[in-house]
């Protein structure tokens, strides 16, 4: 790791005196510094990439085989492939965003984050951006392999809307992850269990493997608080021939709701982080390690 790759403190023209950034420059450099290990550092152990792709792909294959065994229409295979790829993002938000500050606490880094003159919000944003880039690559690999393996037919009605939905869903999702991270700041061993608990129930209510239109309206509406619910539903409507007939609500409304969720989660993350940080300091829980 050299200074070009991680320019937190840059050298000033006056030899021997490091120039210390402040304000938005420091914020930006913190974001880059925290995003760096997410994008580049994770590639250090190549086998992680293999397992990160293989494990969700195994789930995709299993659910596709179930659909084939019970004679489902071909588009459902595509729904599963798309949902399976999106599980990578949910797993990333749960394990590498929400419970990340717990891991940092366990390893002794959290106190350093708090002591350093940078913004915790910048650290969370760096984690989110780095995680999003790295996970997008993995999700893309899962989508390509799954699509080729099961010959999924995509009929995209609007690439622009598809791109907009994806970006909005990711922004809202990682905003939610940042909010959870601040809430998890106070947790210890239970953080692991709570992240573990939030997998299958979310796969169910968000319709990772089937259209949520099949739920009663109010259940589907309530589950829309998780950005992937509407994101997946809109992407399926835009990418598959039978998508619009199986969609929950119109894509336009889903885009609007996702935009609102982005603002709500990012704002909530900002305020919750400040509150939880103060609370954790007051209660002396930033360095505790309850195994």
């Amino acid at each position: 790791m050299n200074s070009e790759q991680l320019p937190v403190i840059s050298q000033s023209p006056i030899a021997g005196r490091p120039h210390k950034n402040t304000g938005w420059r420091l914020f930006l450099q913190t974001v880059i510094a925290r995003a760096y290990p997410r994008v580049v550092g994770q590639q250090g152990e190549k086998s992680w990439m293999f397992f990160d792709v293989l494990l969700p792909l195994g789930g995709v294959i299993a659910y596709v085989c179930v659909y084939k065994a019970i004679g489902a229409p071909e588009d459902y295979v595509g729904f599963v492939v798309m949902g399976g790829a999106m599980t990578a993002f949910w797993m990333n938000v749960l394990w590498s965003m929400s419970s990340q500050l717990y891991w940092e606490k366990e390893q002794g880094n959290l106190a350093l984050y708090i002591m350093a003159p940078n913004s915790m919000m910048a650290i969370l944003l760096g984690m989110a951006l780095g995680g999003m880039v790295a996970t997008t690559l993995r999700a893309l690999v899962i989508t390509i392999i799954g699509s080729l393996m099961f010959q999924v037919q995509y009929v995209v009605s609007s690439y622009l809307q598809l791109f907009a939905v994806f970006i909005l869903a990711m922004t809202a999702l990682y905003g939610m992850g940042m909010m959870f991270a601040s809430m998890f700041l106070l947790l210890s061993r239970e953080a692991w269990h709570l992240s573990n608990l939030a997998q299958e129930p979310v796969y169910l209510v968000s319709g990772f493997y089937f259209p949520i239109r099949n739920f009663p309206f109010w259940i589907a509406a309530a589950s829309s608080i998780i950005p992937l619910t509407l994101g997946l539903d809109a992407m399926r409507q835009l990418a598959f021939a039978s998508g619009p007939t199986l969609g929950f609500i119109s894509v336009g409304i889903e885009i609007g709701v996702l935009a609102v969720l982005c603002v709500v989660f990012l704002t909530a993350a900002h305020f919750l982080l400040a509150y939880m940080e103060k609370l954790a300091i007051r209660e002396g829980r930033l360095t505790e390690s309850r195994r």
């Binding site: 659910y63 179930v66 659909y67 019970i70 004679g71 489902a72 459902y76 061993r189 239970e190 269990h193 573990n196 608990l197 997998q199 299958e200 129930p201 796969y203 169910l204 990772f208 493997y209 089937f210 259209p211 099949n214």
Partner: peptide, 30 residues
Amino acid sequence: WTDPFLFAVYSVVKPISAAAILVVMYSIIT
């Protein structure tokens, strides 16, 4: 790691959700 209530919720919600995914998939198609 937690109180008995949360442990009970944890023990119930996770497996039932996993099973419910398959049940919903099955009921939609059949």
